[in-house]
Every structure is written in structure tokens, then in C-alpha cells.
Simulated assay, not measured.
Amino acid sequence: MKVVCVGGGPAGLYLAILLKRQDPAHDVTVHERDAEGSTYGWGVTYWRGLLDRLHEHDPESARALDAHSVRWDEGVAHVRDLTTRHRGDQGHGIGRHRLLEILTDRARALGVHVAHEHEVGPDRLPAADLVVAADGVGSVLRARHAGHFGTEVTTGRNRYIWLGTTKVFDAFTFAFVETGHGWIWCYGYPFDGGRSTCVVECAPETLTGLGLDRADEAEALTLLEQLFATVLDGHRLIGGASARGGAQWLTFRTLTNRTWYRGNLVLVGDAAHTTHYSIGAGTTLALEDAIVLAAALREHAALPQALARYERERMSALLPAQSAARHSAQWYEDLPRYIHLPPERMFALLGQRHSPLLPYVPPQLYYRLDRAAGQLETLRRFKRWLGPKLARAAHGRTP
């Protein structure tokens, strides 16, 4: 099979790896328009479940990914001068440059041809049995047939900027700062021994009120360093992460498609779907797309059946993530509804932001109900454990 992947991000590279592992005779090429090593972005995050899956499908790249990632198992929230900390699931961070370097090296070792600075347009697709559109949210291959794919884009309200920092956070960190123009907040997590990702977000009126919409990058970084001085501990913020003009304030675009394939053209990763960055799932979903597509191609000799299965499985699997992302973005857009709770309660509801019920229940009441439900579940587990023991005791047998 001859396969062309357009886009050298995680989805395209990992699919190429899996296809060559399945059958070394496959002719697989990855075309990436940017120069090697010039990727945008700082660190990406993923969770233990993904790493376990990667070990199942390609242990060598999984070991390299694991070795170059940093870990945390706590979350911390700073609200004004108050701080609360909780243990949680194990998270992992890795620099996007390092992630792509690992996947590129592994792909080449398996015989994949990875061509950088090579742009493929919709009107000059290479001859191939399968063309994979892995060219991101702005996919030109998808846009050429947007009517067929049923592409829809919904733009969020809040503005955000993706930055780096020399502060190495020891946990997934949230910091909420009140200004005279409203609240501004950041999410931070480490991705190597000397740097962290720091995403800053605020409502549009806060952005304009602080003058951040008019400030150049240096002025904006200086102001943000002052606003988040407590959490940054004197460390600086770093901009200019984009290979195409530096860091900038954005609105998040949630992209969906009615179908993910047309003939021998198939969408993967951000070309097929996006989920709000606040749930930290983008890289995971892209790699899972590659896993499912590779499996479908292995198990179905006919391409239409393989692509139909891939679309069906991934669309179904994405529903919970898309719902969680939608409600998570809404939580931050409704931040004034929660921010004046005691930090412990606010952080608890931050952890519940994926709930479809939360926007419709008074926050204090939701917190109390959630706590009560947790206690009831603990009681149920205790009763399930105790029941057999009491039954055995009633019959004169010891556990």
C-alpha cells in the first residue's frame, strides 16, 4: 500500500510508524511544509492511560516518550493570596519539539520517508492508495472539500495566549488574578527540566481593559509577569513560540466534521476535530486517531470499509471528550460564577467543570451535593465489602 501523510505532527508521524510496523512493505511518506525542528508550541500534556496504549502499539517510541517526559500527580490553584492543593491522576508533559523529534526518528528508522519543507496542496496530491490529511485545524486538504466533510467551526468567547516560562512548576498549576478589569488566569505545567508551558486566558473585556490587545509582545510579557509574579517566583515568560510571527492572543476554534473521509482522502487529528485546550486532550486524541486508523486498515482489505470503521469508532469515542471540552470552556467563560467561593470549593468545582449539570445548579448547592454523593459512594463500597462478611458470620464461618 502506498500512503502519503500530509502534515508532520503527532497524528501523521505515529500513523506512519504503525503502518510500517504492520507491514514493512508499505510505502509511507510524510510531507511537512515547515523546516525540521521549527515546530510551533511549547509543551504538550498527556495522561498515563495514553502512555500505556503507546507501549502496546510501539514500545520503542513509547519508551523514548516516557524517558523524555516530566511527571506530576498534584494540582494546585492560587486564588488571590490563597492556595489549595490536591492529589490527582498522574500527568505527563513533554516539549512538542522533543515529541516530534522522537516520532520522526522512529519513523525514519522503520523506513518512512519524512520530507520537510515540502508543501502539498489540494490540487496537486501525490498519487497514492491513501492520502492522510494530518495538516491541522487549518487543513487545506479538508477545506478543498469542506462541503463534503460538513465542516463546522465554533469560536469561543475568551482570549488566550500560549507562552513558555523558565519557572518549572511542580504540579499542574492554576493561578487566578483579579484586576480592575476583571479576572485573568493561567494554566501551567512542566515539560522539561528547565521550562513549563503557561497558557494565559481572560475575557475579551479584560484583555482590552488591560491594554493587552494593543501591547506588543515585550510589553504584554512584562505586564503578565507582574500579574503572575507570585506564581512565577521571579521567573520570566517567553513568547515567540510560533514559527509564523510570534505568540498572539487567539480565540479557540472548536472544529467538527460530519464525515472524515472522501474517496481515498481521510482526516486525522486537528484536521478532523479539535477540543478545547483546557482538557489537555489534543495530542492524546491525535495519537488515538492514528491507532484506530492503522487497526482498521490492517483488518479490512477494502479501503472504504476500513475508513468507515475508523470514522465510526473515533466519532463515537470522541463524544465524551467533546462534551467535556465544551463544558470546560464554558466553566472558564462563566468564571465569575465560581471564583468567589472559598478556594477549596472553587477548586473542587474546577475539577467538576466537565459536568453538564454544573451550569444549571447553584455552585454552593452543587458542591454540597457532590460531596454527599461521594460519601454515599464510599458507604456503598463499604456495604458491598461488609455484606459477604456478615453473611459468613451469620452462618458461623469466619472470613
Rank of each mutant, 00 (worst) to 15 (best):
residue 77 A to Q: 07
residue 56 E to C: 03
residue 62 A to T: 00
residue 50 L to G: 00
residue 68 H to Q: 14
residue 66 D to I: 01
residue 35 A to H: 05
residue 38 S to E: 14
residue 40 Y to S: 15
residue 62 A to V: 01
residue 44 V to Y: 13
residue 67 A to M: 02
residue 66 D to S: 11
residue 37 G to L: 02
residue 39 T to E: 15
residue 60 E to G: 02
residue 49 G to D: 14
residue 64 A to R: 10
residue 61 S to H: 00
residue 38 S to Q: 13
residue 32 E to P: 07
residue 44 V to Q: 08
residue 43 G to Y: 00
residue 37 G to T: 12
residue 72 W to H: 11
residue 43 G to C: 06
residue 73 D to S: 12
residue 37 G to F: 05
residue 68 H to D: 09
residue 56 E to A: 11
residue 73 D to H: 10
residue 49 G to T: 06
residue 73 D to V: 03
residue 41 G to V: 08
residue 45 T to I: 12
residue 54 L to G: 02
residue 57 H to G: 08
residue 41 G to A: 06
residue 48 R to K: 13
residue 69 S to V: 05
residue 33 R to P: 11
residue 61 S to A: 14
residue 71 R to V: 01
residue 73 D to R: 01
residue 51 L to M: 00
residue 52 D to W: 05
residue 49 G to I: 04
residue 35 A to Q: 14
residue 39 T to M: 10
residue 45 T to R: 10
residue 52 D to K: 14
residue 42 W to P: 04
residue 72 W to P: 00
residue 57 H to A: 13
residue 69 S to N: 03
residue 32 E to M: 05
residue 51 L to R: 00
residue 41 G to T: 11
residue 52 D to A: 07
residue 39 T to P: 09
residue 69 S to H: 03
residue 56 E to G: 06
residue 49 G to M: 12
residue 74 E to Q: 14
residue 52 D to E: 09
residue 32 E to H: 08
residue 64 A to Y: 01
residue 68 H to S: 10
residue 67 A to Y: 06
residue 53 R to F: 05
residue 52 D to T: 03
residue 45 T to C: 06
residue 42 W to R: 15
residue 50 L to M: 03
residue 77 A to S: 12
residue 41 G to W: 04
residue 75 G to R: 05
residue 43 G to D: 02
residue 44 V to P: 00
residue 49 G to A: 05
residue 67 A to V: 03
residue 42 W to A: 15
residue 60 E to D: 07
residue 61 S to C: 15
residue 68 H to V: 09
residue 34 D to Y: 06
residue 50 L to R: 03
residue 73 D to A: 05
residue 63 R to V: 13
residue 55 H to R: 13
residue 39 T to D: 11
residue 50 L to C: 09
residue 58 D to P: 01
residue 48 R to W: 11
residue 61 S to N: 10
residue 68 H to E: 15
residue 51 L to N: 08
residue 37 G to C: 07
residue 45 T to K: 10
